[in-house]
Design a protein around this nucleic acid. Structure first.
Length: 860
RNA sequence: GCCGAUGUGGUGAAACGGUAAACACAGCGGACUUAAAAUCCGCUGGCGGGCAACCGCCUUGUGGGUUCGAGUCCCACCAUCGGCACCA
């Protein structure tokens, strides 16, 4: 017996066949504006997947989850009369690809090519309707030429007073010096403490460090000062918050981004330093506080250990202790610093400041609970109304003074919420919000401070000490950087024999001595860009992927990214893991390009949906060590691509976390086989032929109703991305047809159109089979080119509906009544019911609620 | 600690404030078969009653509330998962 005849339907024969047909006939090629076969009368729909890293492990079952969802939407929109852009590509630069290359000892280009070939084969075996002619690859010089070009735009831009990006040439016109301009560029060099990961041999962005360890590999990360390229994302912090409002994103993701950006309103307050011993140009400490209303309760100050004023302020008696403490904190890794977060530590500097509001002398301390990177790196401590200051003051015996009166029954010590100001001079009696306003106005009037806004977001550390990334189009000469002319792009990385990290902060590109020398006096920048660079704009490249004159053609960008909404991409599907990485970075780049006039919308992605993680059969996260990983190739081999697609959509709501079940795959596989047998039958030899029950007859009333309900519900459910319920409805419909003795071929052909976005191979195959016998009933070409069927509302209406009778809200009886029956009529039928009367126990009805078509509730 | 999401049968899950559990999985029974697999048909939340078709009560994490009527809305609490975490 051949393995084929054991299959419930011959998917392994027809699935590859249709994939080849689609490819041969360019079934999913999407023309651009200006192309010969472009139909400008149709609306556009841009549906985007988060493109994968082509890792050596190949596709896992999480990939097809999102990809199937977008494929169904894309196919549905195409059938509904849209020009659909549904592309795929490769995020092939970056750590995972390079780590794999290092592990296997081959050049990253070679392993990346092989992995892409494998991913392509796997994706094609699932029948996704991608326009493969638009495939992009971030490591392709034709692509990263434009990544480098965008970097030059960042390098040559600054943010003006209007909060928008402008070319730095404007600053040149204004006569600013080179140093002044360099200090304002969106891409700039900074010597600052950064996240250095010795194991990976590179620095990492804040977003890539989790609990003091690298996101990739989980290696320890330490802080050390290094000269690095930064991108001024902080200049866009407010817009990145505000412009979330116009987007159709899950509220939880918006919140995640808002929290990451971390806006807080407050005031800067300047404290004079008492008893100055040395000459300081600016003898004061500026602090940021969100609670200026508590200024009267500031009983000491704290500077971050790294604060530049510490050296100046420390008295001789305290100097040794201060130095020891600073050394200790500097050596601590981020991980240690978090672990030790519980216990407060600090040292008195010996110096005092003057509280501007009451002229009190208050001691200045240093402590590592104050971070140099946030606000001004200095705080006024109000121990009565801040948990950290309270803890610190208790430990070191510093005074605690109440300045906020909490509501009745609450202790004022450590009370951090709003209340009424007390012991605060001219603020006494005011509520916290009023007191904030008054003190801020007072500070501004006296020139002692001002209202201000602070963000947790830091600038984006943009350089990496790795080989496998885009080289910076920058050269250095006389200690200054300058950019390459656009004509020299793409700047290819050198061909290195040994591309491993050096193990020191010296990037591996330093080994390419010829490449490094740009001219007699200039050398190239040795760092490379991070993985995120290529993924910040790939969706734009898809619009016009082979353009070698521009990063994207204007007409293509305006058509595919346009549409009158803030975001250009109509639907973006991917995992939550990019909530504050890729999705924030891409929005930032897009805004810069928007300000400079290169794109037509302020936001890249209008609607975002996060697919939920698929867990292993044991309910645990899939991992090699647990041995619960499901390989999609195995599923395709055993049950077919359509079954894999359908199962992943049937598991549950797209956005939910859900466990895999092989039994569940078999369930949808059986459903597909039932659809197959509506059209086909098998003889004793195991040979399939057209079913004799399939005839050119009109569907009866019940089957017509089932079909039209399915057309309606599936159309609505696809729009809602509620694929599991759409599939349920197709099962209901199929069960109805299975029960019929004669199968109406025309109705089944229509059903196949509804099925086709979900199970495109089976739909094409059965359509072709029906077409062989009844050419006038089936689609002449591909089902995917057909129009989505229109349901007939009249077919959904029944003569009678079942009405539920309740007494005091409890179900007691039911009856079928004509749909046309009026309220009084239904009410009379209900009251006549023996069971209703029984439960009314002879009492009169106090109230009768009649919901036509639904129920009657009698209240006694 | 703060923020967010989720809690419904043995399992994955459905359910405009209106018959809780659609559709599947698993289980049970039947038809077909020498037999098995496959397929087709039926049953399948819990407790109690009846020979029976059937009948009653209970049930959406817990406790309150709004409503003629609550899985759905409101308040409080509990549990699980995810994110952030000395951000002044």
């Amino acid at each position: 017996m051949s393995s084929e005849s054991r299959k419930a339907f011959p998917f392994s024969e027809f699935e590859p066949k249709w994939q080849a047909e689609w490819e041969a006939k360019n079934a999913f090629r999407t023309p651009n504006p200006g192309d010969a076969n472009f139909d400008a009368s149709k609306p556009k729909y841009f549906v985007l997947d988060m493109f994968p890293y082509p890792s050596g492990n190949g596709l896992h079952v999480g990939h097809p989850e999102g990809y199937t969802a977008t494929d169904i939407i894309g196919r549905f929109k195409k059938m509904s009369g849209f020009n659909v852009l549904h592309p795929m590509g490769w995020d092939a630069f970056g750590l995972p690809a390079e780590q794999y290359a290092i592990k296997t000892g081959t050049h990253p280009r070679v392993t990346t090519e092989a992995n892409i070939a494998n991913f392509t084969k796997q994706l094609k075996s699932l029948g996704f309707a991608y326009d493969w002619s638009r495939e992009v690859n971030t490591t392709d010089p034709g692509y990263f030429k434009w990544t480098q070009w965008i970097f030059l735009k960042l390098y040559n831009s600054y943010v003006g007073d209007d909060g928008k990006a402008h070319p730095v040439s404007e600053l040149e016109t204004q006569g600013l010096s080179r140093a002044e301009i360099d200090a304002r560029r969106l891409a700039y060099v900074s010597e600052a403490p950064v996240n250095w990961c010795p194991e990976l041999g590179t620095v990492l962005a804040n977003e890539e460090v989790i609990d003091g360890k690298s996101e990739v590999g989980g290696h320890p990360v330490e802080r050390r000062p290094m000269r690095q390229w930064m991108l001024r994302i902080t200049a866009f912090a407010q817009r990145l918050i505000d412009e979330l409002d116009g987007l159709d994103w899950p509220e939880s993701i918006k919140l995640l981004q808002r929290n990451w950006i971390g806006r807080s309103e407050g005031a800067e307050v300047r404290f004079a330093i008492a008893d100055l011993q040395s000459q300081i140009s600016n003898p004061e400490i500026t602090v940021f506080t969100t609670r200026p209303d508590t200024l009267f309760g500031a009983t000491y100050m704290v500077l971050a250990p790294e604060h530049p004023l510490v050296e100046v302020l420390a008295t001789e008696e305290q100097a040794a202790e201060i130095e020891a403490y600073r050394g200790k904190t500097a050596r601590k890794s981020d991980l240690e610093r978090t672990e030790l977060a519980k216990d407060k530590s600090g040292v008195f500097t010996g110096a005092y400041a003057i509280n501007p509001v009451n002229q009190e002398r208050i001691p200045i301390w240093i402590a590592d609970y104050v971070l140099m990177g946030y606000g001004t790196g200095a705080i006024m401590a109000v121990p009565a109304h801040d948990e950290r200051d309270f803890e610190f003051a208790q430990k070191f015996g510093l005074p605690i003074m109440q300045v906020v009166q909490p509501p009745e029954g609450r202790d004022w010590q450590g009370y951090t919420d709003d209340g009424i100001a007390v012991n605060s001079g001219f603020l006494d009696g005011l509520t916290t919000p009023d007191a904030k306003k008054k003190i801020t106005a007072w500070l501004e009037e006296k020139g002692l401070g001002k209202g201000t806004v602070n963000f947790k977001l830091r600038d984006w550390l943009f350089s990496r000490q790795r080989y496998w990334g885009e080289p910076f189009p920058i050269v250095w000469e006389d200690g200054h950087h300058r950019c390459l002319p656009e004509g020299e792009l793409p700047l290819l990385p050198p061909d290195l024999e040994d591309f491993r990290p050096t193990g020191t902060p010296e990037p591996p590109l330093s080994k390419a001595t010829d490449w490094v020398r740009y001219s007699a006096t200039a050398t190239r920048e040795l760092n490379t860009m991070p993985q995120w660079a290529g993924s910040c704009w790939y969706y734009l490249r898809y619009c016009d992927p082979r353009n070698d004159q521009r990063f994207v053609g204007e007409a293509a960008e305006q058509y595919w990214m346009g549409g009158g909404k803030p975001g250009g991409v109509d639907l973006y599907v991917g995992g939550t893991e990019h909530a504050v990485l890729h999705l924030l970075y891409a929005r930032f780049w897009h805004k810069v390009l928007f300000d400079l006039g290169f794109v037509s919308t302020p936001e890249p992605f209008q609607r975002l949906v996060n697919q939920g993680l698929i867990l292993g059969e044991d309910g645990q996260k899939m991992s090699k060590s647990r041995g619960n990983v499901v390989n999609p190739d195995d599923v395709v081999r055993e049950h077919g691509a359509d079954a894999l697609r359908l199962y992943e959509m049937f598991m549950g709501p797209l956005e939910q976390v859900k466990p895999w079940s092989m039994k569940g795959v078999e369930g949808v596989y059986r459903f597909l086989a039932r659809v197959w047998r509506l059209v086909m039958e098998v003889d004793d030899e195991g040979v399939w032929s057209l079913s004799k029950a399939l005839q050119d007859v009109p569907a009866n009333k019940a089957l017509t109703k089932a079909l039209h309900e399915t057309i309606k519900k599936c159309g609505e459910d696809i729009e809602k991305l509620s694929f599991n319920t759409a599939i349920s409805q197709m099962m209901v419909c199929t069960n109805a047809f299975t029960g019929a003795e004669v199968k109406p071929a025309g109705a089944i052909a229509t059903f196949l159109r509804v099925l086709s976005p979900f199970a495109p191979h089976l739909a094409e195959e059965l359509n072709a089979r029906i077409r062989d016998a009844f050419p006038h009933l089936a689609a002449a070409g591909f089902v995917s080119d057909e129009a989505w069927p229109v349901y007939d509302p009249a077919a959904l209406i029944e003569d009678e509906v079942e009405i539920v009778f309740q007494v005091n809200g409890k179900l007691r009886d039911k009856a079928r009544v004509p749909v046309a029956a009026g309220k009084e009529e239904i009410e009379a039928i209900a009251l006549a019911s023996a069971r209703v009367q029984e439960f009314m126990e002879g009492k009169p009805a106090k109230k009768i609620i009649v919901v036509p078509g639904k129920l009657v509730n009698v209240v006694v």
